[in-house]
Amino acid sequence: MTALRQTAVTKAVPLLQALPLAAILIAFFVGPVLLVVAVSFFDYQTWDILIPDFILYNYEILLGSETTYRTYLNTAKLCLLAWFFTLTIGFTIAYFLAFHVRSVPLQIGLFLLCTIPFWTSNIIRTISWIPLLGREGLVNQGLMGVGIVSEPVEWLLYSEFAVILGYVHLYTLFMIVPIFNSMLRIDRAVIEAARDAGASGFQILRHILLPLSKPGMAIGTIFVVALVMGDFFTVDVLGGAKVASVGKTIVNELGYLQYPPAAANAVVLTIVTILLIVALMRIVNIRKEL
């Protein structure tokens, strides 16, 4: 009897320990996300922004508009470009840190150097591009000073270029950390064996490091895609009025207190984000099969 009670208590302990986490996630994540799905079927009016109902109106308007498709396509394009650059730069940096820096304290130091900006403000880091890229910014001053151009280059700021630059600046670290982590787990004996068997540096990279870093690349991909698809600040600050994105559209709708249309858009955005992540995982997988 005592033994039985003992097991019951032992079984209850981890449940109780996990309870605060579960409660917070249910209250502020699971509940709200389900609510977004529900609200996307709600009705709304100027004086009553949430009228519980089950109408398809918000989706009909959203999916019936050509602008929607153009905005989604543009967001996906920004996302793919950001993914490509963060992945290639992140992989190169991680590769350098993991295999070319030989002293461990230096490795840790350089790794920290790459991660510190993660703990500072993304808003400030985004804004800080403006005095560099603007019409009278440092880059244009430099280019004109050297005489490469006679007129300021206009596409540096408030353009897709600036937005991608901002994403690469903010999110490359989400690639570096997991890829570096994967690379540190690679058994050095495998590389030695390949070298002894006559593999070139490129062959080692292509046939050993690339496939074995895949888990890290996958984690980085999920982060970058989710962050870029959900962004509304960087695209607003660096893209200006010229660059459209779903996140910006949603925030605009919320600004007019149009919750149900924003919710419908958010539901579609989430689905597209998940599909995009799945598709990108496939690409990485196919490479391994080749």
Binding site: P32, V33, V36, G230, F232
Partner: peptide, 9 residues
């Protein structure tokens, strides 16, 4: 999850 979704919810 895209942050804006959680915020709307």
């Amino acid at each position: 999850m895209p942050s804006i979704v959680i915020s709307i919810g």
